[in-house]
Amino acid sequence: MAVRVQLSDFDIAQEIAALRAGDARVGAIVTFIGAVRDLNDEARVSQMTLEHYPGMTEKALESIVAQAKERFDIYDALVIHRVGALRPTDQIVLVAVTSAHRGEAFDACRFVIDYLKTQAPFWKKEETPAGARWVDARASDDEAAARWKRDAAS
């Protein structure tokens, strides 16, 4: 299990190879990559800056991965989140999960990104033609994370 917060880009093939590490028990690998879009809330985005809270960020990501491992039958998980200046088409975040079967891997991957969106201390500031603005949190992200709580209760 690993989490990384970094300025530099990541290579998904290299990261998956390291995560699998020749483990023959692994029958499913699910990855999610988040990327910078050039349009948000009807404004053209030329660049964004991702800020985080060093010290808490790593702790929050490790806690989310630990919850995923407790909740789903997975072997390992990796989270990489970039910070600093990013442009449209740049990769922002990688979540990769290994498991014996696809069901648990898909669920765990989605759980991690849904929780990351609402629990991990990252903030996006966008450059638009109207000036710089902090991105607003979305209610749909809270709902996505809340869905896992309902699933746990049922």
Binding site: Y53, K59, I92, V93, L116, K117, A120, P121, D136
Partner: peptide
């Protein structure tokens, strides 16, 4: 609010030297 890097509630007690961070709604991912 996070106290010493962990999300806290309004009732969380504070001790001398604690790091208390005020966080706007997060927008990572």
């Amino acid at each position: 609010v996070a106290v010493n890097h962990v999300l806290a509630s309004s009732e969380t007690p504070l001790r001398d030297g604690d790091e208390v961070a005020l966080l706007p709604p997060v927008t990572g991912g």
